[in-house]
């Protein structure tokens, strides 16, 4: 896996696209994510010797899972000595492919579909120190190829143990209410972050999602598209 050159990330483009790249400048997004970052870093893996698994999911598509997962990963890389593996586990959307230029890269779905392929070998380092990526894969998931829970779990185990203690694996999943993968992945997570979009996510859907995730440990919530607190911003001009 180290043979391939590290994936070049266009940080400037990412910043223009609204991502919170690590920088000296003040970033509102970075600030907002600071408590989450702290929690993620403090998350202990259930089994020692492997990386902590952070599953980012939501009730419905389009609520900002991918955006927040990438942001979280990027901002974690700002921390000294952080090692972050971002896994795109959403074969339907492949949300990370566009911003990171991963389209057409082999990834998770290929490893799941092909027993001979090692998921760990498909992880790509990036030019941003501490950040590794596992693309979604070229094999588009369809009705004909239902994801296998066992294989997924096995792949995840391989990835995290290989990544090792002290690392953080951030898994971007499909919506809970749209596919089973999210539940399976969340079942193995050390921390589940449910993304909720302000004024968009229906209460029923959220309630349903939370009930499905009730067995998971450390279920937290991020409110996306939150209202800017006008009163609070006053001091910052």
């Amino acid at each position: 896996m180290a043979k391939r050159p590290p994936l070049a990330l266009d940080l400037a483009a990412l910043e223009r696209a609204g991502f919170a790249v690590p920088s000296e400048r003040f970033s509102a997004l970075g600030e907002a994510l600071r408590p989450l970052r702290r929690q993620v870093l403090e998350t202990e893996p259930a089994e020692p010797g492997r990386a902590a698994i952070i599953v980012v999911t939501s009730a419905l598509p389009g609520e900002g899972k991918t955006f927040l997962a990438l942001n979280l990963a990027l901002s974690l890389c700002g921390e000294p000595g952080a090692r972050v593996l971002l896994v795109d586990a959403d074969p339907y959307r492949q949300g990370l492919a566009a911003p990171l230029g991963l389209r057409g890269q082999t990834g998770l779905s290929d490893a799941l579909g092909d027993a001979g392929l090692d998921a760990g070998g498909l992880v790509r380092k990036t030019t941003l120190p501490g950040l590794s990526l596992l693309p979604s894969g070229r094999r588009a998931a369809g009705p004909g190829a239902p994801p296998s829970g066992e294989r997924l779990t096995a792949a995840l185990t391989v990835l995290t143990s290989r990544f090792g203690q002290g690392g953080t694996t951030i898994v971007d999943t499909p919506p809970v209410l749209a596919s089973a993968e999210a539940i399976i992945l969340a079942g193995h997570a050390d921390r589940v972050v449910v993304v909720v979009e302000n004024r968009r996510t229906p209460r029923r859907a959220l309630r349903h999602t939370l009930s499905m995730l009730q067995d998971c440990p450390n279920v937290d919530c991020i409110v996306n598209m939150a209202d800017r607190d006008v009163q609070g911003l006053r001091g910052y001009g």
Binding site: A20, L29, A32, P35, L36, Q39, C221, A226, D227, R228
Partner: peptide, 23 residues
Amino acid sequence: SVGAAEAVAAEFGIRVVASVPRM
């Protein structure tokens, strides 16, 4: 649809670890 962070926390008994505005 769900509302602001405090409302979500109160209603669903879940911890809201971040409230991210539109970037």
